[in-house]
Nucleic acid binder design. Sequence first.
DNA 1: CGATACTGTAATGATTAATATTACAGTAAG
DNA 2: CTTACTGTAATATTAATCATTACAGTATCG
Lengths: 139, 139
Amino acid sequence: MNSDFTLAIHSLTLLALQPDRMSTSEYIAESAGVHPVRIRKVLSLLKKNGFIISKEGTGGGFIFALDLDQVNLWNIYQITSEGALQPKCTESNGQCIVGANMKSVLFSIFMGAEAHLGEYLKEYTIKEVVELVKQTETY
Amino acid sequence: MNSDFTLAIHSLTLLALQPDRMSTSEYIAESAGVHPVRIRKVLSLLKKNGFIISKEGTGGGFIFALDLDQVNLWNIYQITSEGALQPKCTESNGQCIVGANMKSVLFSIFMGAEAHLGEYLKEYTIKEVVELVKQTETY
DNA sequence: CGATACTGTAATGATTAATATTACAGTAAG
DNA sequence: CTTACTGTAATATTAATCATTACAGTATCG
């Protein structure tokens, strides 16, 4: 699984806990343990899709744009990782019936798998992820 | 998605179409467009799990050990790719409630996702994959 | 105004994962 | 005892991921 997906979830969860102020990419990056530029790249996707708002300049940063239950993991998956389930088949032998057709057979099977995964991911909104993180909290 | 998974499917489909004779790793490799050593590695997993039989020496190779409908894609996934859905989280910041707990929250979510995927993959046996390949055949 | 603190994004470099290749021991057939 | 295979380890190559640098653009504040 593409780690942009989990970075996006991590970022949104963090923003969910800071509803009143802008969070900088540096702050998020430190929580996630990655480079700030990577956070900005991932968050620019979320911004394009209207899940967050960003602001440049002093006091700028990122903030959640919607209610926590308006964003689910399937939304995030589609933005960051659509097609990630698809295996990257090397070019196989077109002379052979299997080599010639396996690619398209697998493609349709994995399309179905992704749709099926979607049904599962839709069950988790950011609100629920936040709840899970709080429950997991270690004292 | 791990390409060992698709290589295993490809190999088994090919073996399914050659039920009476041994197929060599070189033959399979040529159909799949990869190196024979890679085929032997993947097939050695399938062998350990009893799906195929191998034979060394002249006239040796690989052959299907079961009925075509006794092997489904979930079986193959488990052997070749279990855990592949799990994202590889970098070590995040334990000082932060999100950094500290996100990893285990994501872990359980992805465990569920994999189980859910399993339900879908169980619906495809090699027999059905063979049918699909035949249907797809381009004349 | 100019200094400061941010985002946005491209370009490059470093690290890691995936894959191919080589090498060779073991086994069975003829 | 030679030939044609599998089995597996070791190494080399290629590709993907990620970090880093660099810098332009924008907003705030004094």
